[in-house]
Amino acid sequence: MGQNPYDRVKLARDNSRPTGLDYIKNIFQGFIELHGDRRFGDDAAIVGGLAYLNKSPVTVIAIEKGHSAKERAMRNFGAPHPEGYRKALRLMKQAEKFGRPVICFIDTSGAYCGIGAEERGQGQAIAENLMEMTTLCVPIVSLLVGEGGSGGALALAVADRVWMLKNSVYSVISPEGCASILWKDPSKAPAAAASLKLTAEDAKSLGIVERILPEKDLGTKAFYERIRALLSEEIGKLSKNPDLIEKRYERFRRMGAVTEFDIASAATWPVACGNKGINYEHL
């Protein structure tokens, strides 16, 4: 298993990893898929519907990359269009209406970059999800299971808990994109991957995810059962939390690293960062 960050990016992108539907089928029972955004179409890159987690109904939403070449093309390689994000939001609002928790599985290189996606408001669709998810009155747990590509991943990750698989990555830009913008050289992607701090361990120490899920037994029965048990427990706890929305607000409100410039105490940063008093030197 590779240890440098770019190897981890390659692992996260590996076609043989379980995809969204594998998680849905193996963790939940009685999945019923629900299609369409009621506005334009049905995006095959995002799958959503109803299922049981143990014995409670939940809403599950997953970005699906597909396995075979044909299926991958049909799923647009897991790059959602605006209608995918709008379908996800529709299902979340439905979950809120019926008091069901929401569980999202995220695996995307990013929201699709295309003419139709821009014409139908990719930015607006993501923005609306970010805004609406902050006040959704039911628990939301999001799991990054492969690639967590920028805004296209965040649009399903404004959650009470965000977990990452050990070899998933979460980044503001792909290492290749970063290298070509900053250094005009996409072949410097490995250096960019190291600088971007995109591994699960980095995200956890930045206070952006709560839990890293081991994946030595990736795709086995035991692996899915472990996730099911963790989800059950966490959702049980979140469902009893009367301050769910405030806690979710605070969760994102404290993210970032800024200095308050003050001549009297100029050396006091970081004032606000992911974890109070975090030490970045080990990163």
Binding site: G151, L154, K197, L198, D202, I208, M255
Partner: peptide
């Protein structure tokens, strides 16, 4: 990195 991405949610 990720800290800038999170500003969208914040």
């Amino acid at each position: 990195g990720l800290l800038s991405l999170m500003q969208m949610a914040k």
